[in-house]
Design a protein around this nucleic acid. Sequence first.
DNA 1: TTGAAAGCGATACCAA
DNA 2: TTGGTATCGCTTTCAA
Lengths: 336, 336
Amino acid sequence: MANIFDVAKRAGVSIKTVSRVMNDQSAVRAATRERVLKAMKELDYNPSHAARELRSGRSRSIGMLFGDPSSGFQSRFHHAALQACDEVGYFLAAGLFDERADDWDKQLSAFLARTRVKNMILVPPLCGSTVLHDQLIERGVSFVLISPTQPVDGAPSISMDDFTAAKEITSHLLELGHRRIGHISGDAEHIATKRRREGYEAALAGVSGAEIDESLIQPGGFSFDEALDVAEAMLSRPDRPTAIFASNDEMAAAVYFVANRLDLRVPEDVSVVGFDDIPLARTIWPPLTTVAQPYEAMTHEAVRKLTRSDATSGPDDVTLGYELKIRQSTAPAPKR
Amino acid sequence: MANIFDVAKRAGVSIKTVSRVMNDQSAVRAATRERVLKAMKELDYNPSHAARELRSGRSRSIGMLFGDPSSGFQSRFHHAALQACDEVGYFLAAGLFDERADDWDKQLSAFLARTRVKNMILVPPLCGSTVLHDQLIERGVSFVLISPTQPVDGAPSISMDDFTAAKEITSHLLELGHRRIGHISGDAEHIATKRRREGYEAALAGVSGAEIDESLIQPGGFSFDEALDVAEAMLSRPDRPTAIFASNDEMAAAVYFVANRLDLRVPEDVSVVGFDDIPLARTIWPPLTTVAQPYEAMTHEAVRKLTRSDATSGPDDVTLGYELKIRQSTAPAPKR
DNA sequence: TTGAAAGCGATACCAA
DNA sequence: TTGGTATCGCTTTCAA
C-alpha cells in the first residue's frame, strides 16, 4: 500500500506538499495540487488514519452512544451516521451505553479513553443527561445534540419542528371527524414531549367538540412497555377516545397491542397515529400513520457541524423539516 | 494523558517491558508485571491505539458490513458485536454496504482501504456472496461467517442448529393439532433456508394427516415485501393452512399483515411462527412465537476466533444453541 | 528477563 | 509557495 513518500516521489514534490493537499491547505499552487492528486489516484493512495491521528493528536472519529438495542429509532441514526461519516472521511465510533447502570460515568470514561474521540453526536434519550454533558465538557469533547431535552450552552442542537408536525398530524385526525383524541406523551424531561403535546393542543384549540380533556393526556415515557398500561386504561374507558396520538411509534405499537387485546379494531374502532417512522411503522398491521423524522438530514447536519472548521458558519441551532406519512391506521371517526 | 514512558518511569522499567506486559508476552517476571500493571492503573494509562496500529501494522478493529437498515436482525448483531469487541479491547468498524448496487466491490475496497481492517465478521445476507469472499481472501482479510450460505474454505463458520429448531417449532404446531402447516422459506441460496425447511419436513414426517404438500411450501426470500404476496396466495386458498411457519420474523410479520387484510385472526384462524426473535417479535400483536437466535453467543465466538492467537483452538465450525420463544401467535388448530 | 535504538506514516514547525 | 526534519506513542529487532 502506497504511502506519502510514494506519492511525493511520483508527483515530484515533498511529502509536506502532499500533506498540504490532503488537508486542503491553501498554500499550494493549483498545478502542483493537480499533480499530487493525480499521483494519489494512480497509486490508489489511502492515508493511514493511524499515522494522522498519532501525529495530529486529533481523532478522525465521531462518537455515538447507543442504548436500548431494540429501538428502531437508534438504528436509523446509526445508519445515517455511518453514511454521513463516510462522506467526510471520518469514522463512526459506536459505543454501548446502559443508561440505567450506576457506573455509566465509568462507561463513558472508558469509551472516551479507548476511542479518544473529541467529537460526539448525542441522540435521544442519552442526549438529555446533563451529567453526561458536564462530563463531556470537562473532558473537552465537543458535541452536537440531536433533538435534545433542553439546550446546552455551547453545544449546537439539531431538531425538527415537533410542534408543527404534531399539530399537523392531529389536524389530520380532526379532519377525519375525530373529536375525542387521546395523547400518550413521552418522557416528561424531553423537550420533544412538550412540543408534541403543544402541537396536539394547538390543533384541538378552537375546534368545537374537541376541547382538551386532561384525562386523555397521559405519559408513556416513549416506552412500549409503559405505554401498554396507559393505552389499556385509555381504551377501557366507557368514553374512550376514537383516536390516539402516541408521541412515538413504539407507543403507537403498544396501542395496537392493547386494542387487539380488547377486541377493538384499528382503524375502524380507534385510529392511531405515531411519531418517528421507525421501520416497524410499515411492518405492523395496519401500516401506521406517523411523522417521518429527517434522520439523514439531521445526522448529516450534525456531522457537518462537527467537521467543518468554519464552525461559525450557520446558526447554532437548526430545525429541519419532516414528512407526514399517511398510512392506514387512520379512518373517519366511528359514529356513536 | 499518560503515555508508555510515564508508565515505564513510574514502574522503574523500560518501555519495552511495559509493552510486553500490555501484549501479554510471557517473558516478564511476575513481580515486574505487577509493578507495571500497578503503574498503569495509577496513571489511568490507556495505550494509544493509533500508535499501536501504526507501528504494528495490525488493525485493532473488526469489520462488519450492514445492508438493509430496516433489518432488526442486523441491529441485534451490531449490538452484540459492539459488546464483544469491547470485551477484548477491539473496535468495531461498521460499514454500509448496498448489495443491490453494481459498484459493491468499489464499496468494499473503499471500506478496507479506509479502515484497514484485517478481520471481519460476515452476517447474512452478505455472508453468502462468494465474490465477497474471493475479494477478502485476495486482500488477505480473515473472516468468520455467521450463519453462512455455504461453507467457505479457510473461513470458520458459526451457526445455530437451524434444523432442530425448525423441527421443534413445527412440532409445537403439530402438538396444537395443526396438520396443514404452510412454510414460507427464505432465500434459496442460503443454507439456513434449506435446514429450516428440512426441519419442518422432518417434523411432519410420520404424523398422520400432516403429509407434506409442496404447494404449501413457498419461497419468500427472507423479505417482508416478498412474503406479502406469498402469504396472500397461501391464505386465500379455500384449503388454506391452519398454521404458517415463516423462515424469519419479518416474513411472519407479513403473514400477520395479510391475515389482517383478509379478516383472519391470529392465532384463532391461523397460527403463525417465525424465526430469529428480532425486536419486532414482541412488539406486534399477538406476540410472535419464534426461535431466538443466539446473537450474542455467535458474535462473541466470532470475535474470539478472530482475536485469539491460538487460532487452532477449537473446531473451525461451531454450532450454538437456540431458544424457543412460545408466545401468543399459536393456538390449537380450529375445527373445520 | 530486560533494555537501547530504529522506525511505522503522517503532521508541524521553521527555513528558504 | 515549497521543503527539511523533528516528532507523535508505540512495537520490533537486536543485543546484553
